[in-house]
Design a binder for these strands. Structure first.
Lengths: 215, 215
DNA sequence: AACGTGATGGCAGCAAGCTGCCACGTGCGG
DNA sequence: CCGCACGTGGCAGCTTGCTGCCATCACGTT
């Protein structure tokens, strides 16, 4: 089933949103999903309140969705409402929604005015898309972790320390290798762990990997 | 369009495989795709030879596909034929194929005998699935890297240890939390680091992240 | 029952990591 | 010149991580 434009989607498929019982997942590039504010609200109003029901809501975005502060604030608020939000560092469809693992709605790359939506209930299609979504979801990072975890630009010093750690040197050899005293090297490591909000060196390694500070 | 069974798929959609011009991507849980050897060969014969054409072939599997040695050998051979193979640590659809970003074929979870395939050309659906595939692909690790660096299948115990480490617990609390003695917990950590060929816990964290052992 | 094997856990001792404290040098503004 | 802030490094003491050694226990085998 194909519909054009937000209004028609709400009219024809609105009941699907309302009918969500267990799970509502969506993947999108950014937050521009509902170009028409009233359409957005219309759907939002129909969605059951977060925690109350046993409805799990998962939203997956690209970093594009964090472009402006308003968007970040909105996402943070959504999170406090019990919605899980994750950020994927790889491109995503313009819009993919799967409801209760039974229905899915895909949006075409938007033309200037109206957007084209495809609504499908074929189990084969829905399951396939759902599994792919799950894979992308699992690989993505929690919004809070993402917002917190970026040590946006750490100086060359820290990078050197990171490399030393990654090379598996002991602190002593690493310090010698970097021309630092043991004390200072460890200070640097502590600072780094602080920046990464890691409680242990293992965690620091994990975070460093996640944030792509290895290459 | 829906077809049942391998034979029918080959008959009705075989030309799609032959028609692949630029790109052939697939995601699957394991290698049991083509239950019928002749169907498999039939399709294989129709696929253009690897490097010759400008055809890029990408295959994404779960670790299940590496269960037995025969499967691993087959995948290694496929790689030498110029096919890109990656392993995703998260569940995947039973079968998803996208050809030239224009056609896609999804396979339903297989019944006992015949399997149900869905063939779709709707740009909206194909693009959506393709983007999700790309996200999962980007997050997966190269087969060679996976085979080299891996603790191929670590038991639940090790995974628990990994989670404890990732959570940033100290050894003592982690051990208590897992119902192990401090000594044994540390033994486990040592074994894990050995398996990951890591010289330090930091390195272990890094590797664990690289290998996608976090989720 | 006797035996080997393997996983476990306590202990001890060492190595490594962590941090507070203080002292020194450099640079900057008063 | 003095004082101040800041980064550095030595020292000391503590915590944590690491491992060899040995006793124990659970098991399957002979």
């Amino acid at each position: 089933m194909t519909v054009r434009g937000d209004a028609e989607l709400v009219a024809r498929a609105g009941h699907l949103f309302t009918g969500a019982r267990h799970e509502f997942v969506c993947a999108a590039r950014d937050l521009d999903t509902w170009s028409l504010p009233d359409a957005r609200q219309s759907v939002a109003r129909r969605l059951p309140r977060h925690g109350a029901s046993g409805l799990a809501v998962k939203k997956l975005f690209t970093p594009v969705a964090l472009a402006d502060e308003a968007a970040r604030a909105h996402l943070r608020e959504v999170v406090t409402n019990g919605v899980e939000v994750r950020i994927s560092s790889t491109p995503l469809p313009h819009e993919t929604i799967v409801i209760d693992r039974r229905v899915m709605i895909l949006a075409e790359r938007d033309g200037p005015g109206s957007r084209e939506y495809t609504v499908t209930t074929s189990p084969t299609l829905v399951n396939g898309v759902y599994s792919l979504f799950a894979a992308a979801w699992d690989a993505a990072t929690e919004l809070t972790a993402y917002l917190r975890g970026d040590a946006p630009h750490l100086d060359d010093d820290s990078r050197a320390v990171l490399r030393a750690l990654g090379a598996g040197y002991t602190d002593e050899t690493a310090a010698r290798h970097l021309g630092l005293s043991l004390r200072t090297y460890r200070r640097r490591v502590a600072e780094l762990m602080d920046a990464l909000e890691a409680d242990s060196r293992f965690q620091a390694g994990l975070r460093a990997g996640e944030l792509g500070l290895t290459g």
